[in-house]
Amino acid sequence: MSDRVIHVDGLTKRFGSFTAVDHISFDVKRGEIFGFLGANGAGKTTAMRMLCGLLDPTEGNADVAGFNVLTQAEEVKKHIGYMSQKFSMYEDLTVKENFEFYGGVYRLSQKTIKERLGEMLARLGLDHIEKTLVHDIPLGWKQKLSFSLALLHRPGIIFLDEPTGGVDPITRRQFWEMIYEAAADGVTIFVTTHYMDEAEYCDRVSIMVDGRISALDSPENLRKEFKAQTMDEVFRQLARGAKNAAG
C-alpha cells in the first residue's frame, strides 16, 4: 500500500429510483486535509456514511485506512475517527466519563485512557474541567474536546462533519489550528463545511453536485480554473445548476 489512505472507485448509492451518489472516484493521501464540499442534498452525507462503513454501496468500492468498506466494515470503523457538529459527547456525563466510555468502546486499557486524557487536557489548558459535566462547558471548548475524543484511539483518518457550525469566529480559527497540528502528525483529515473561507484551509477540495464530483483540486487551482477570486464564487458557479436540491 502506498500513502493513499482513502481510495474510492465508482462508489454509487441508489435509494429506489433516486441516485444519491453517482460513481464517484478519488484518492486521499496520508496527512492530507481533504475538504468535501457540496450543496445540501448533493450526496455528501451518503458518501461519507459509505466511507465510514455505515452504509453499503449499491455499486463501486472503496478502501479506507487499508480496509475494504464492503468486506471489512468493522475494521474500517476501528481505524477511523468521527466527529459531527450535532452529536459528539454525552451531555450528562463528565469529560472524564466520556473519554472512559469511548476508550472502552475502542478497547483501550484504563491506563492508556487516563494517560491520553491527561495529555490532551494539558495541551488544551483545560485540566480543571476533567470532572465537569459536558452540559456545563462552553460550546467552543466542547468542540475542541470532541476533536480530541475522536482522536483518542489514534486513528489514521478522521472524518469531520461540519465541525465548526455555529461556533464563534475565534474558536473556529483555533479549531482549524488543531486540524493543522493533527495533519502535521500524519493524521488524514476528511472534512465537510459550509464556511467557504474554511475551504481555503484544505490541501485539496472536492465539490459534489447532484451525486457527482464536479471539481477536485487545490483551492488555488480551482480559483484559477473557474476564474474566481474566492472559493465561495467557485462553489456558487458549480452548485447553481444543481437539480437535486430537495434530495
Binding site: 445540501n40 448533493a42 461540519e162 459550509h194 467557504m196 462553489f235 456558487r236 452548485a239 436540491a245
Partner: peptide
C-alpha cells in the same frame, strides 16, 4: 432564529 444555519451558500443566498 438562525434560518440559514447548516444551509449551503447558494441556498443561503
Amino acid at each position: 432564529d438562525e434560518p440559514t444555519t447548516g444551509v449551503d451558500p447558494v441556498s443561503r443566498q
